[in-house]
């Protein structure tokens, strides 16, 4: 059986003011039905663009410069508008970073849920959907601004999960929430997805947090997925130098009295297809090839890695100091 989601060599440019910024530079990703995948990357890595592209929700300044996305075998960019809506409705759900902004401020929560659930929905159905995200039925009578961030995000999750989608794309769903609420919201998402068999793509900048929840992790850098594999492997034995740097640069991982040595420089801003590996300027293991030859995917252990030196002993496990 083919995977639920296939992203194959996807390239996306943004054009504004006559300038082109390349957000995705040949990203590959596969998600099987019911699988939980964390996509980790810093700002500018292209993870949000990838998340938006999966629903064909790219802004108007974006242009797809090649590659395909297939959801359950259907090529997303070739669908007619009606079919696209059907795919979005039946197969996909989205949750965004700012929960209150993602709800309509003029409408009570219950009414918004009713709209999502479709005609013939009674208040009992609304209450049932609220209950699934551990909210009281009375929440239906509230306006979005009356809710706390955590409650609003649960409502957004209830709406996204109402149609029991096959894949839920969550773009930093807890970034605006406090740590305690964060865990509660994540509990709700993951347990609900597990009961309905929904797969999850969770976009985040926090590698450790993602690895705790998801079965697989994909690390993005410079618009490509530079490493993907089982969460424990990617976090514990990173095979790409960038993943290693990322795993070793969280202040929380530093032991008492040690000084972290972060990767120098900052993530690249691509203007066109990268000639070589976009991490090369910051990489400690750089060789001549890296600058002018795009690294192909290599299998190292259980991980798929885009690195010319992947698998060489020197590059493995660096920075995983925890």
């Amino acid at each position: 059986m083919s995977p639920l989601l296939v992203v194959d060599r996807l390239a996306v440019d943004y054009r504004a003011n006559g300038r082109t910024v390349r957000a995705l530079d040949g990203a590959d990703l596969e998600v099987a039905a019911g699988e939980t995948v964390g996509i980790v990357g810093e700002s500018g890595s292209g993870k949000s663009t990838l998340g938006a592209a999966i629903g064909r929700l790219l802004p108007r300044t974006a242009r797809v410069d090649g590659g395909v996305i297939r959801v359950a075998g259907e090529s997303l960019f070739e669908l007619a508008p009606a079919d696209l809506r059907r795919v979005r409705r039946e197969r996909l759900g989205f949750v965004f970073q700012d929960p209150i902004a993602s709800l309509d401020p003029t409408m009570r929560v219950g009414r918004q849920l009713t709209l999502v659930l479709g005609r013939g929905t009674g208040s009992g159905d609304v209450a049932a959907h609220l209950d699934r995200v551990k909210l009281d039925a009375r929440t239906a009578r509230s306006y979005p601004h009356e809710l706390s961030g955590g409650m609003a995000q649960r409502v957004a999750i209830a709406m996204a999960m109402a149609g029991e989608p096959e894949l839920l794309v969550a773009d930093e769903p807890t970034a605006a929430l406090d740590s305690q609420v964060r865990e509660e919201v994540l509990d709700v998402v993951f347990s609900l997805a597990a009961t309905t068999g929904t797969g999850i793509i969770w976009l985040s900048h926090d590698l450790a947090a993602v690895a705790r929840r998801c079965s697989r992790v994909a690390v993005m850098y410079g618009g490509r997925v530079v490493e993907q594999g089982p969460a424990a492997e990617v976090l514990g034995r990173p095979a790409h130098p960038y993943t290693a740097a990322l795993a070793g640069s969280a202040p929380a991982t530093a032991a008492r009295g040690t000084r972290l040595e972060p990767v120098p420089g900052r993530p690249p801003m691509l203007t066109g297809p990268s000639d070589g590996c976009s991490f090369a300027p910051r990489c400690a293991f750089v060789i001549d090839r890296c600058a002018h030859e795009r690294p192909p995917a290599v299998r190292v252990g259980d991980q798929d890695v885009l690195c010319h030196r992947a698998g060489e002993p020197a590059t493995i496990g660096q920075g995983a100091t925890t």
Partner: peptide, 14 residues
């Protein structure tokens, strides 16, 4: 700030 930049700034402060 991004994770990799955070540590740069924290080191700078120290």
């Amino acid at each position: 700030l991004d994770v990799s930049v955070q540590v740069q700034i924290l080191n700078l402060i120290k």
